[in-house]
Design a protein around this nucleic acid. Sequence first.
DNA 1: CAACAGATTCC
DNA 2: GGAATC
DNA 3: GTTG
Length: 702
Amino acid sequence: MLERTAKKREKRDEALPRRARQSPKVSAPCHGGTISEDESIISISTSSRPSSPPPIRKLTKPSAKPPPKPKPVVQSKSVPPKKGKKKEKVKMYPKDYAQMLLDQPPDPSAKRRQRFLKGMNIFYTGGDMTWASDATRGRMDLIVQHGGNLFPVFDPALVTHIISETSSPEPMLRALGLKKLGEVPDHIPIVKWNWVVSGQEGALGPLWEFAAYANRIPPIDVPVRSGKGKERAIVADQSRISAKQRKRSIHDSEDEEDDERQGPQVGPLQSPPSSRRLTARTDGPSTSRVKTEAADDPLAEFYAKARFDRDNAWSRHGEAGEDEDETDIDEPASDSDDDTAQKPGPPPPKGGWTCDSKEAQVKNGPNEFIAKKLEELMHLHKAKPGMDNHWRAFSYTKALRPIRKHPKPIRSYSEARKIKGVAHKTALKIMEIVETGDLRRIGYENTADVQIRKLFQGIYGVGQQTAYQWYAAGCRSLKDLKAGKGGVTLTPAQKIGIEFYDDINDRMPREEAQALFELIKPIALEINPKLEVEIMGSYRRGKADCGDIDIMITRCPDDGKTHAGILHHLLKALHEKNIITEDLALPEDPFDNEAIYRGLCRLPKFGSRRRRIDFLTVPWKSRGAALLYYTGDDIFNRSMRLKANRLGYSLNQKGLFAGVVRDPRNRTVKTNTGNIVASETEEEIFRMLGVPFQLPHQRVRG
DNA sequence: CAACAGATTCC
DNA sequence: GGAATC
DNA sequence: GTTG
């Protein structure tokens, strides 16, 4: 095994056993999913084709291909989608989308709207990595609707305003087709989208107040990582819009060096005017006011009861108390469920209620649009380094479910506050969304650097820290990484992660997971017919699409033998059959009774894509715990573990332990590992925790 | 003010 | 021992 | 970011 590990890091192909290596990738032209160079690099087409036709409104000649039909971008309520015809979204460069808008007849309904951008020639860039995002499309729509002349390409002679949504100038410059900020004529202001928002909210604010960049020197504000993995504040310079800025826009001088900071003019960063009223009212004096308000609400009990009733209704059929344990009732696992439960097969037919109805409910709730926005913000936080961001995102995760489940549209702050997981800050955000249909915080968090880090984090084996460091090293695209720009080095797994970037990030249809499993299982049984081979993960939960395949292997040791060593043979066999194509992480000892393997696999057929696959072998006695753990879902697991902890247990993939003693200082250190109480079957564990048994497909919480 | 899960593997 | 993954 |  060690030899394999060593070999593996040379080249990916070398990692494969001889036979697997024999078939060169070329012979199996499965380019289906690998990311193309085009998509991996950041480039905004406008910059790459500066020679496009002049951006005049009546421009007739389409710049590139005939623009596809418009796709109304459903945006905030303040901007109703135009003419309700829906077209499926077509991938387009921002520039092409802009062009398409120009080619469209003016929207008559826009007449009713204030056209405060009338007469302005606007170039907009949202910093989109490649294709025009929904946000970009929506904003371009708005610019046009408000009377602005949207320019697909930047023409310094014609453009009067640049609206940039990138925190650092580089992405914008790419879009402009320029090298440095100094090349932008001084008379053309560069402002953030907030400026337009100010127009929507009444009157356009003074340009200087919305300056996108504090100065025009590219502030290589590339955050430098400190010595060892300590988080570093990423201080964007956008808050330092001061007199300097004001002068710039007035005098067109860009070389001010004065450091005078007079009352930091945090234009774009201040709290949204839209929610100001509300904030002032409820938030003003103190939170106590808010609390009183909530407590006084005669409906408070009703909501709580409603939730309780609903939860109980579900648990009657095996669906335990929702998020956390609090809600679950002491109901012994129903016997009837137990037998069906053993089999991981397809979900059994349901009676009066259906999971589907529940799913639908969760997805189409009246507050879905709120959840969407918050979720977006959550993802942005997730992309940032540091524990605080981690927990912030975690917190949103917890609040999202209750929000989605809230039966009626949230209308007031106090109503929002009553929702589990929603406290002051989130309630304010919810109200901002309710009132304006948007969350400005998203715009200002969703900066270009975050986008790039998110791209990096899509690589297997890359998390916040690494993404951050790479960005700091100057990498801006997958190409940069591959080139080793800034001295970055990639681990073998990361190289694979880049090579199969979108294969790995895409989900596969359930059928494909099934096909792979049915292909693999016999191979395992061939090695040893007494093996128990189970597929877990989202497949077992019955999902229609799966992000990966989790396979558990165990064996009853009745006859004194175990499955030790089979993983080694199985992996070898699968490599030989070209089912497993790449290794990501090998078990430390593949002959151990307990081992984990991670890798990529694919159906051995033309054009099939790489899929993530995990194997784990577990001791017979902990098969229940492993099954439970790897079946998830994540949120469900967390609540199980949480409840276990509260009851004085400790739950992990090996089993449920009692009497665990932890070091009071470092709670992660167990001075006493405790005694295993349950682990052989899922039912057993559910019972010990007093949670009504739930079939895999019922364990969906996230 | 602490907790928010815990174990394994890679580097 | 930190980072990343599940 | 929220909860206890």
